[in-house]
Amino acid sequence: MSKILNVAHLGKTYTSGSKQLTVLDDVSFSIDSGETFAIIGPSGSGKTTLLGLCAGLDHPDAGTVELSGVNMGSLNEDERARLRNEKVGFIFQNFQLLPTLTALENVVVPLELQGAKNPTKIGKELLGKVGLTDRMHHYPSQLSGGEQQRVALARAFSNNPAILFADEPTGNLDQDTGDRIVQLLFELNQEAGTTLVIVSHDLELAQKCNYQLRLRGGKVISNEILIEN
């Protein structure tokens, strides 16, 4: 099985006044294509920073990230953006929908930007899969938190990403709504054959993944197989 993500000796340090804050320290791991992978740890352990570096949203101070065989450090910003558009999907805790666009438009616009054929048809099919056929012409302000996250799910899978990064995908949702989102996320992921990387403090959610990486104080304290394929 090919590696979709290779992270080697990753480090990230921020300057705060006269102090240096090391957020990630010598983090290494790899993920096979099609795996589900959880990154867990307490607040401040470096989870979200690690996710951003893996997705090429930020630059490490040390180490390398290879995404789909490409060293992210060798790319300029335009090349990084192109690689993300082609290979990566995102789901965020705060949904990040465009408020002036309807649910359907939020899914369709990225497809149009990528030059997809029949983007409206694809958008409607995806919203149907997440149970929002009757809500697709509503704006984000007219949707509940769970409905907004379902739109975000549909959008994330719209470009058939090779890898999907989900940052606390249930963090702003109640238990029942969060459970439904998790179920949809894994169903869509299995159907699409996407590699799924979830950052979460929710241990129950993490247990659903094949692999689990545990961070504490910016360091890897465990990396274990939970479910054999």
Rank of each mutant, 00 (worst) to 15 (best):
M1P: 06
L5K: 06
V7K: 02
A8P: 07
H9E: 13
L10F: 00
G11T: 02
T15Y: 11
T15D: 10
T15N: 13
G17M: 02
K19A: 11
T22E: 03
V23K: 00
D25K: 02
D25I: 04
D26S: 06
V27Y: 01
F29G: 04
I31G: 02
G34E: 04
E35Q: 15
E35K: 14
E35G: 12
A38Y: 07
S43F: 03
S45I: 00
G52D: 06
G52I: 02
A55Q: 00
G56M: 11
H59K: 15
D61P: 01
A62I: 07
G63A: 08
E66V: 08
L67A: 09
L67I: 13
G69Q: 06
V70E: 06
N71I: 10
M72P: 01
G73S: 03
S74H: 12
L75D: 05
N76P: 10
N76S: 07
E79Q: 07
L83Q: 05
R84S: 02
V88T: 09
V88I: 12
L98W: 09
P99Q: 14
T100P: 12
A103N: 03
A103H: 00
L104G: 00
V109Q: 10
E112G: 00
G115C: 05
A116E: 14
A116I: 13
K117D: 09
N118H: 15
K121P: 07
K121M: 12
I122C: 12
K124I: 15
E125C: 06
L126Q: 08
L126T: 02
G131N: 13
G131K: 13
M136C: 06
Y139F: 13
Y139R: 07
Q142S: 08
S144W: 12
G145T: 07
G145I: 03
E147F: 05
A152I: 07
F157Y: 08
N159Q: 12
P161M: 03
P161C: 07
A162F: 00
I163Q: 05
F165L: 13
D167E: 11
D167Y: 02
E168D: 00
E168S: 00
P169E: 09
N172P: 03
D174S: 10
Q175I: 08
D176G: 04
R180E: 14
Q183A: 13
L184I: 11
E187C: 08
E187S: 12
L188Q: 04
N189Y: 08
Q190S: 14
E191C: 06
A192Q: 12
G193M: 00
T194A: 11
T194N: 08
I198R: 06
V199G: 02
D202F: 03
D202T: 05
L203G: 13
E204L: 10
K208V: 01
N210F: 01
Q212R: 14
L215E: 08
G218Y: 01
I221D: 08
S222T: 15
S222R: 15
N223I: 14
I225N: 10
I225K: 13
